[in-house]
Design a protein around this nucleic acid. Structure first.
Lengths: 196, 196, 196, 196
DNA sequence: TATGAATGAGGATTCATTCAT
DNA sequence: TATGAATGAATCCTCATTCAT
C-alpha cells in the first residue's frame, strides 16, 4: 500500500503501540488512538485497513525495529560469539525496557488472520536465526558447546520476557542482562570438567 | 460461593480455558463458552460473576491445579534439591503438555481490574516461592550456587513455555525436560572451576 | 431459521415495510425500526441477520402475501378466464392501494445478494405464471386472443404500478381497475362485437 | 451554474447514470463515480452541489434527452395521431435500449427533497403531456377512442419498462415496439373494423 | 437452579464533504 | 480549476448481561 504521509503513519503506530500494550485489545478504542495521534478517526482507516490491521502493524513494526537494531549492533563491530551474545541480550533487554508494552505484545502468535502471515513468521524466524547463528558460530569456534542451538535460541527472548513480566522487581537493565547472561553462558560455555 | 454442581463448574472452566487460550479475550464469546460447555448462557452467571470473573477463575484454577500437583510430588518423597528441581521441571512440562491452552494462558499478567486480583497473583507468587525454596535449600546445602534465586525461580516456568510455544518441533516431554534441566543446572550447579 | 416469536417477527416486518417504503433504504435507521416495532435494537438482529436481510424479508413477505391472496381468490370460485383476469387486476390494485409502499418496493429486482436468490426469482415467476395461466386458458377456450401471453402477463403488474406511481391523481381503486381492464381486454378479447 | 467543461459534466452524468441504475443510491459511492468518470472526487463538487444534486441531475438530464428526441421526431414530419403514437413508442424503446440504466432509473419517484424537485417533476409531466396530446388529438380527430387519455399516457412509458426489465427475453426493439403498439392500439383504436 | 430471548450501551466503520495546495 | 487527503457525524452491529419463566 502506497502510503500518503509515512511520518503520520509512524506517529499513529507509535501511539497505538503504547495504547495496545497498556490495555488488552478490546479496551483500546480507535477514537483514543485517533485522539492520541492528533488525527481524525477516519484518518486511521486511510492508513490501516481496520483495527486488526493496525494492531498487527504495530507488532510488525516493533519486531522490525528490534531486529534491525540487533543486526546493526552485531554486524557493526567485529566481536567474538560470546561478546555478540552479550550484545544481543543487552540490546533485547534495553529494547524491552524502553518498549515494555511492545515487547510484551510481541510474545504471542498474532491471532489476527492476515494475508501476509508468512511475512510475519519470517520475521519471527529471522530473530531466532540471528541468535542461533551466533551460537552456532560459537560452537564452530569451540567457544560454545550446545547440542541444541535452535532450542537455546528460542530461550533467550523468553528469558528476557520472564523477567520483564513482573515489573515490581524494578531491577535495573544491567542486573537483568547480567543474570540472563550468567544463565545462558553457564549452559553454553564449556568448562574444564563436565558436570551433571 | 456455595456452588451446587462442582462438576458443571469444572466443565465450564475447562472449555473456557481452551477458548481463552486459543483466542484473545475479546474474541471469546460467552455464547461460545456456554455452547461448548453444553449449558445455557445464563448458567454461566450462576457460577461466575461475569466474563472477567470467569477468565480469572480459569487462571486461578490452573495455578491451583499445578501447584497442588507440584507440592504433592515435592513433599511426597525425601529428595535432594537437585532431584526436587528435576521433579518440578518434569511436572511442569507434563502439566503444560496435558493442558497446553491453560498453561499458555497462565503466562500473562492479568489485566482485568477485579477485586480479587490479589488472590490470583498470590497463587502466581506461590508457584515462584515453591521453586525458589528449592533453589535456596540447594544453595544452603552447598549443592547450588545462585546469587539471584528469585530471578532463577521466575525463569523456570518461562523456559517451559518457550519450548511449548513452537509446537512444530514435536519434541517429546522428555527432550524438553532434559534440555531445560541441562540449562538450569548449568547455571545452578557449581563446577570445579569458576568462570566469569 | 427457527423463529422464536413469529408474531414479533411479523410486527417487525410490518413496521419495517412502512418505513422502507416511505424512504430510501439508507434513510431508514434500524433504531427507528426498533422503536416503531416496540423492541430493542438488538432484537432486530435476533430475527434478521442484518439490515439487508430485513429489507429483503420485507419484500419477500409482501410478495408471498400478494400471491397467496391472488391464488386464493382465483381458485376459490369457478370463473371464466375473463372473470379471473378481472379478479386478478382488482386484487392487485386493492393490494397496491392498501400497501402502496410495499408494492412500490417490489418493483425492482432486489440488489442485495442473498443466498436464496433463486427462491426469490421463483416467487417472481410464480406471479407471472399465475397471470399467464389465466390468459392461456382464455386463449385455449377461445375467449382471448394473444400471440404473446408471456409478454402480456408481464404487463399487468406494471400497468398497476404505472398508475400507482402518481399518487396525486387520487383516482379510486375502481377507476384504476376499470381502466387497466379496459386496456388489457382491448388487447386480449377478440372482437367483431364490442365489449364492456 | 456556469460550467467550464460541459463535456466533463456529461461524462460524469453518464457514468453516474450507469452506477445509480445498477445499484441503490446508498451503494453508489462518490469515489466510484469519480473513478469511473476519470476525475478526482473533489471535481464532482465543482459540477454538482452534492450527491443528491448529482442524482437529480442524472434524472433531469435523462428526461431532457428523451423529450428532446421525441419532440423533434413528432414535430418534424406531419403525421397522423396513430403514426405519431407509433413514432413515440419506437423512440422510447430505442432510447430505453440505448440507455437501459438511465431509463430504468427514470422509473422512480424522486425521494430527495431538494429545492428544484419541481423543475424535475416538471420534465416528467412534460413527457406525459407530450403523449397525452397525441392521444387527445387522435380522439378529437375520431381516430382514437379513450375515456382517460391521462391514464393511457402514463401507461406507455411503463409498458416499455415492463418489457425492458427482463432482459433474458432478448426480444429485439422491433418486437417490443410491435407488441406494445398492438396493446396500446387495441385499447385506443375503435373497431367494428380490424386494426393494424 | 437453569435457561435463552431480549436488551442497549458501546464501539468499529463508512463515506459524503471540505479545503489546502 | 482540479485534486484527494483528512475529517467526524452518522449508523450499523456486537455481545455481555439481565430477568421472566
Amino acid at each position: 500500500m502506497q502510503v500518503l504521509d509515512p511520518l503520520k503513519r509512524l506517529k499513529i503506530l507509535d501511539v497505538a503501540a503504547a495504547l495496545f500494550a497498556a490495555q488488552p485489545f478490546h479496551k483500546v478504542l480507535l477514537s483514543d488512538v485517533a485522539e492520541a495521534a492528533g488525527v481524525g478517526k477516519g484518518t486511521l482507516y486511510v492508513y490501516f485497513k481496520n483495527k486488526d490491521d493496525l494492531y498487527l502493524s504495530v507488532l510488525y513494526n516493533g519486531f522490525c525495529q528490534l531486529i534491525d537494531q540487533l543486526q546493526q549492533k552485531v554486524d557493526q563491530n567485529q566481536q567474538s560469539p560470546l561478546e555478540n551474545l552479550q550484545t544481543v541480550v543487552r540490546e533485547i533487554v534495553r529494547f524491552a525496557c524502553q518498549n515494555p508494552y511492545l515487547y510484551e505484545l510481541m510474545r504471542s502468535v498474532p491471532w489476527c488472520q492476515v494475508t501476509d502471515n508468512a511475512l510475519w513468521n519470517g520475521k519471527r524466524t529471522e530473530l531466532r536465526a540471528l541468535i542461533e547463528a551466533i551460537i552456532c558460530r560459537g560452537v564452530a569456534l569451540g567457544e560454545f558447546e550446545d547440542p541444541h542451538p535452535e532450542l537455546t535460541a528460542r530461550f533467550i527472548p523468553h528469558l528476557v520476557r520472564s523477567v520483564m513480566m513482573d515489573r515490581e522487581l524494578s531491577s535495573t537493565p544491567e542486573t537483568i542482562s547480567a543474570h540472563i547472561l550468567r544463565f545462558a553462558c553457564a549452559a553454553l560455555v564449556p568448562k574444564p570438567l563436565d558436570r551433571m
